[in-house]
Design a binder for these strands. Structure first.
Lengths: 123, 123
DNA sequence: ACTTGACTTAGAGCGTACTCTAACACGCAT
DNA sequence: ATGCGTGTTAGAGTACGCTCTAAGTCAAGT
């Protein structure tokens, strides 16, 4: 298969049709064509784009920043350095986030261990 | 030092006084005493509690779940198993989240590498 | 011909976690 | 005594990212 209806995309990506249309309205998805009755159909390229957008969202990039990235993409290949810079900045934020979460997780595990110790003594 | 005013707590924890009062209103913080003019003062125990709550929030535990955890705490030491279970469930969610973020980060890094490759060839 | 189901739109509504406002109170320094 | 800084409250407002509603269109199956 190489073109998808909105429900197919939803199944594959785990997003809802509502969210896919919302992304399009917010200009995260460009040039989604329509069939004769006005229904969207998506290509493999759209699918790859949605998957990439999902990776950005899963790492908490805001819709606004993704929009900015896509807008640069739309402006042509001379914006590559700017787009790369957005991604690199984001990479650093994500690494920082991973460290934060790991250190919070350590704290939570310590607490769990204290529960385990106290329940061993006095269960 | 061993007691803190709201602004001290804010400085130490990185939260705002507004947020500290909000946490108290939401019953995440219990029994914050007041001085003669009605101003809150916090103990080391409160500080430790806020730090722990911040670790839970940093790992995206909802205010509602934290409230539930604190409510169990308030109900006495026989709720320890239930509290531990909340933390263990959360630990698994956080581990899952870390895996998700790492795999999204890999995808983002691949994209960055493609930008780097293309800018090496055609800068 | 009619129902069903999948789609369309603009725009409203929602959940979460803050974040701020407005009006007021207190204690200390000028 | 007056102003300033820091605190108090209830409740309103905000930002974000969806999520849903209502009314309608279309194509295919019975």
């Amino acid at each position: 298969m190489s073109v998808y209806k909105v429900a197919n995309m939803a199944d594959i990506t785990g997003l809802t049709p509502h969210t896919l249309r919302y992304y399009e309205k917010e200009l995260l998805l460009l040039d989604v064509p329509r069939d004769s009755s006005g229904h969207r159909y998506y290509s493999e390229d759209h699918l790859a784009a949605v998957k990439f957008i999902s990776a950005l969202r899963a790492t908490n990039m805001s819709i606004g920043t993704i929009k900015e990235y896509i807008s640069l993409y739309r402006q042509g290949s001379n914006t590559s350095p700017a787009r790369m810079s957005i991604l690199k900045d984001h990479e650093h934020l994500v690494m920082k986030h991973l460290e934060d979460v790991k250190s919070s997780l350590k704290m939570i595990r310590k607490k769990i261990q204290r529960y385990e110790a106290s329940l061993r003594v006095m269960p």
